[in-house]
Computed example of a mutant assay.
Amino acid sequence: MKVKIFSFSADLLCEYDRLKTGCSEIDKILRGGFRNNILNELVGTAGSGKTQICLYLSLMVQLPKQFGGLNKAAVYICTEDVFPIKRLYQMSSYFEQKFGIENSLDNVFISHIADSQRLKKVLCFDIKHLGRFKSIGLIVIDSIGGLFRNHSSGMRYDHRSKDLAKIAEELRKLSSRFKCIILCCNQMTDNIKTGCSEPCLGLSWSNLVNSRFRITRTTSSWRTFEIIFSPDLPPAHCNFSIANTGIK
C-alpha cells in the first residue's frame, strides 16, 4: 500500500501576532497589521512618513491585543542624525489621552547607533539582556541604509553583504525569540542605469527582506502606502495622512 506524505509549510502551522498601525485603511490591506517572525522593510524618500509610522507603532505596541497592540515594549534603533524625541512626546500626549494610559514613553527604549558593528552588538547582546526584564513587541531600525551610507566609499561590497546577512539573521532570531515585529526603514536612491528610484543597499539586502512596503508622498497632506511584496499579502495600496495626533 502506498502512503501519501503531505508536507506543510511553517506558515500554515503557525499563528502570527499582528500589530495595528492605528490607520484603518493600512490595517485593512495588511490584514490586521504588521506581522512577526519575518523581516519587514518600509521604504520611501525623505519626508515621506516612514519615521512617523514607526514612532506611532512604538506607542501602539503597548496597547492590549483587543485594541490592536501586543501589550509589550518597543526598541527604537536610530541611525540618523537626531532622534525625533519632541515628535514622539507630542504623539504620546494625544495617545495617552485617547486610550487612557500613562507613561507610554517609559516603554520605548531608544538607542542611537552610527555603524553596523555597533548594531550587531546591540542585536546580539543588549536587546537580549533587555528582554530578560521587559517584554519586547517591536524592534525598529530607522534606517538600515543610514548605517552604510556614510561609510560606503571605504567599504568593500562583499564585507557589506556579510554585515547585512548577519544583521538580518540576528533580527530573525530576535523576532522568533520574543515573538516581536521587526521593521526596518530604508531610503530610496536613484539608479543611473534605469533612471528609476529604488531602495538602498541593492540586491544583497533585498534578498534578505521578506516583506517590502513603500510610502510615497502624493501631496502635502496625503501619502500612499503600498505593499510591494510579502509572503502572505497580495500587492495593494491605500491613502493615509499624518496629523499631530499620529496616523489617520
Results as ranks from 00 to 15, higher is better:
residue 4 K to I: 07
residue 8 F to T: 04
residue 9 S to K: 08
residue 12 L to D: 15
residue 13 L to V: 12
residue 15 E to K: 03
residue 17 D to A: 04
residue 20 K to Y: 10
residue 21 T to V: 04
residue 22 G to A: 01
residue 31 R to T: 08
residue 33 G to A: 01
residue 37 N to Q: 11
residue 38 I to M: 01
residue 44 G to H: 01
residue 62 Q to N: 03
residue 65 K to M: 02
residue 69 G to I: 02
residue 72 K to H: 06
residue 73 A to T: 11
residue 77 I to G: 09
residue 79 T to A: 00
residue 82 V to C: 04
residue 82 V to R: 00
residue 83 F to M: 00
residue 85 I to V: 12
residue 88 L to H: 10
residue 92 S to H: 07
residue 97 Q to E: 11
residue 100 G to Y: 12
residue 100 G to E: 13
residue 110 I to G: 10
residue 114 A to F: 09
residue 116 S to L: 03
residue 116 S to P: 13
residue 116 S to T: 13
residue 121 K to A: 11
residue 129 H to K: 02
residue 130 L to F: 11
residue 135 S to M: 02
residue 141 I to L: 04
residue 143 S to V: 01
residue 144 I to L: 04
residue 156 R to L: 09
residue 163 D to R: 01
residue 165 A to V: 06
residue 167 I to G: 06
residue 168 A to T: 10
residue 170 E to D: 07
residue 174 L to D: 08
residue 174 L to M: 03
residue 177 R to M: 12
residue 177 R to Q: 12
residue 181 I to K: 00
residue 188 M to E: 10
residue 194 T to N: 07
residue 198 E to L: 15
residue 201 L to R: 02
residue 207 N to T: 12
residue 207 N to G: 12
residue 215 I to D: 08
residue 217 R to F: 04
residue 219 T to P: 15
residue 220 S to C: 10
residue 227 I to M: 04
residue 229 F to W: 09
residue 235 P to H: 11
residue 235 P to W: 10
residue 236 A to V: 14
residue 243 A to Y: 01
residue 245 T to H: 03
residue 247 I to Q: 00
residue 247 I to E: 00
